[in-house]
Amino acid sequence: MPEVKSMFREVLPKQGQLCMEDGSTMVLCKPKLLPLKSVTLEKLEKMQREAQEAVRQQEIALKEQRREPVEQ
């Protein structure tokens, strides 16, 4: 629309030095694909979980055994 005059005029410097400031900005870390686990790793983790569980059960049983004589 030719009748509306722009408030701002563009300025294109024809002489002198052009300055560009290259500032460092913070960037986002990229999205992370999760690696799939190998069968061996899954089995190892499963065994470790089961072992931990077994040990914990035994410890609980041991505690209860110790507690019983006191109560009697």
């Binding site: 870390c29 990229k30 992370k32 694909l33 690696p35 799939l36 686990k37 190998s38 061996t40 790793l41 190892l44």
Partner: peptide, 17 residues
Amino acid sequence: VRPVTHAGRPITGFVRP
């Protein structure tokens, strides 16, 4: 671009022990 593990390797699509 490609994330790295704690040891500085590019992360892979598969993890073994």
